[in-house]
Computed example of a mutant assay.
Amino acid sequence: MTETLFPSPAWPVLPVEGQTGSYPVHRIFCVGRNYAAHAAEMGAEVTRDQPMFFTKSALAFLPSGRHSAYPPGTSDYHFEVELCVMLGQPLFQADEATAAAAVYGYAVGLDMTRRDLQARAKDARQPWDMAKDVEESAVIAAVTPAAQFGGLDGKRIRLLQNGEVRQDSALSDMVWSVPELLSRLSGLYHLAPGDVLMTGTPAGVGPVAVGDRLVGEVDGLAPVSVTYTDPE
């Protein structure tokens, strides 16, 4: 193996509830418009034709509980709380049952978004990369193994901004279920252990300001949190 010209960052890792080993984060896949009420508040409609996938780099990851500088290039940085699904087995062109069995665990995440840049991209029919793949924009909490979590039925997802509830919905409100999403995504990629799927956000998204503390919650999972500081 040849020597690299400069140091390469290591894969980020997440703690796992009740275990000493860590979960390595490889690729981060995201889903847009997976809650009808959120799609409506953004002026869009949902369809059952094909989930809308996009990606964030693993280098956009930020562990829960940290401080994060308000990012450059935006004056409208929005929170989006999401259920994250962690794969533990390879998947390719999988049916829904196989996809469901490949889930290692779940976590709560924040898909932070430069909303003003996203709006400009939409208007110009351009990609969302600069709006979504932002440094420290994938804030993810500790992973809970799937068997310990016990399934999505009857569980809620919410976000608090400085202690005030901004987003609150049932996980059952997702347009596409977790097995459906993984099955469809496995038709586009050779998925592998370490891949993370952020499953979309409910209605109530909004901007953050310097000094704000965000806390995302899903019943049965460790909460995610982040506090925003002055821009660098």
Rank of each mutant, 00 (worst) to 15 (best):
137 S>L: 05
96 E>W: 07
103 V>D: 07
85 V>S: 07
161 Q>D: 01
25 V>H: 02
122 K>T: 04
40 A>K: 13
147 A>D: 15
143 V>R: 07
151 G>A: 11
126 Q>N: 03
68 S>D: 12
163 G>T: 01
49 D>I: 08
68 S>K: 11
158 R>S: 14
64 S>V: 01
57 S>M: 08
43 G>L: 05
116 D>Q: 06
165 V>L: 12
146 A>W: 03
93 Q>Y: 14
52 M>Y: 03
106 Y>W: 13
106 Y>P: 00
42 M>A: 00
103 V>M: 04
164 E>Y: 09
132 K>S: 10
96 E>L: 12
104 Y>W: 15
109 G>N: 05
38 H>P: 00
155 K>F: 01
157 I>M: 13
165 V>Q: 12
84 C>Q: 04
66 R>F: 12
42 M>P: 00
124 A>D: 13
34 N>L: 00
115 R>E: 01
113 T>R: 02
34 N>R: 05
27 R>F: 06
136 E>S: 04
95 D>F: 03
103 V>W: 07
86 M>V: 14
115 R>D: 06
73 G>V: 11
100 A>Q: 11
156 R>H: 15
83 L>C: 09
26 H>V: 12
148 Q>M: 14
34 N>P: 08
25 V>Q: 08
123 D>C: 06
135 E>S: 15
60 A>C: 01
133 D>Y: 13
67 H>C: 07
22 S>F: 07
76 D>Y: 14
27 R>C: 04
43 G>W: 07
85 V>C: 10
112 M>V: 07
126 Q>P: 02
87 L>N: 06
79 F>D: 03
122 K>E: 11
128 W>Y: 13
77 Y>P: 10
86 M>L: 15
159 L>E: 04
44 A>E: 07
36 A>D: 12
115 R>C: 03
134 V>K: 00
78 H>N: 13
124 A>G: 07
156 R>N: 15
47 T>K: 02
73 G>L: 04
93 Q>T: 13
137 S>E: 10
165 V>F: 10
95 D>N: 00
113 T>W: 05
101 A>G: 05
64 S>D: 03
150 G>C: 06
86 M>E: 14
156 R>Q: 11
43 G>Q: 09
162 N>T: 09
156 R>S: 12
137 S>R: 02
60 A>F: 01
81 V>G: 07
130 M>E: 15
152 L>W: 01
65 G>W: 12
56 K>D: 02
112 M>K: 05
93 Q>M: 15
55 T>I: 12
130 M>F: 15
151 G>C: 11
137 S>A: 13
129 D>N: 13
30 C>I: 02
115 R>M: 08
129 D>G: 13
93 Q>P: 12
35 Y>W: 01
118 Q>H: 13
163 G>R: 05
134 V>C: 10
137 S>T: 00
